[in-house]
Amino acid sequence: MELLVPIRQVTRVAGTVEIEDGELPETAVSYDLNEWDRYAIAAAVDIATDLTEATVTLVTVGPERAEAVLNEGLAMGADEALRVWDPSLAPDSRPRADITPVVAILAAIVSHRQPALVLTGAQSSDTARAATGVAIAEQAGYAWASRVIGATLDSDAERLKVRRELEDRLEARLTVELPALLTVQTGIVSIESPTESAETESIAVRSPAAWGLDAETLTGHHREAITGMRIPAGLQAVDRTTGEPEALAEEMVDTLRTHGVLQE
């Protein structure tokens, strides 16, 4: 059986940034494997290990730099990797607001390959939309469960026992028939650093046309557009204290003393 893991290279912004003309300067960003997707890969590899014939396939929609996250996933034990791209998906440096093209591409791949299980992160660390996974399931006609914190395949590999994380220390227990898509919460499995470097598995690169999709049509209409970007007012206004650790500790002790939590 095939386990398909859609993953994303996310944008990390370090430090206090300056916004220039409503855009983030390219120098302020670096790129990472999405934290939630890392857990999706680890969970897929775990499930596949217990099966006699299982393949974990990674897929990402992204430019060439996104191959870094595929290589990370291969080093974690995934078997195959696929990168889908068309330049029309990112015509300029601004992030795209709507998920429509990415959902259409990934849903087409799911429909075409019919994996028994799709595992993907519950959200991305940069955009935190928590929407793409469930949208893919709907478009591909798959059963789904979101924010999954535990998933066990039954012995005949036909259904999963699933735990979903709710609020207020509550979990829901579900049974989900395969084929299905799960969006994965961090902590679903424990992750150890890869001990071996990835063998040089090759990454297949395809255009959306491979699944009969026309990239221009997919990307031509923006249902949503980002029209402004700024540092949140509340974060802009913060009075930050910097200095040597001893001086910082001194100021913190003063605050603790003022608020009466110091036992003297």
Binding site: V13, A97, E224, I226, G228, M229, P232
Partner: peptide, 20 residues
């Protein structure tokens, strides 16, 4: 409709205008 939400791990705020 024009909505605001956080972006880039909540470090920035964006305005999103709906075309549909």
């Amino acid at each position: 409709l024009k909505l605001r939400r956080r972006w880039y791990a909540s470090k920035l705020e964006v305005s999103i205008e709906l075309n549909d």
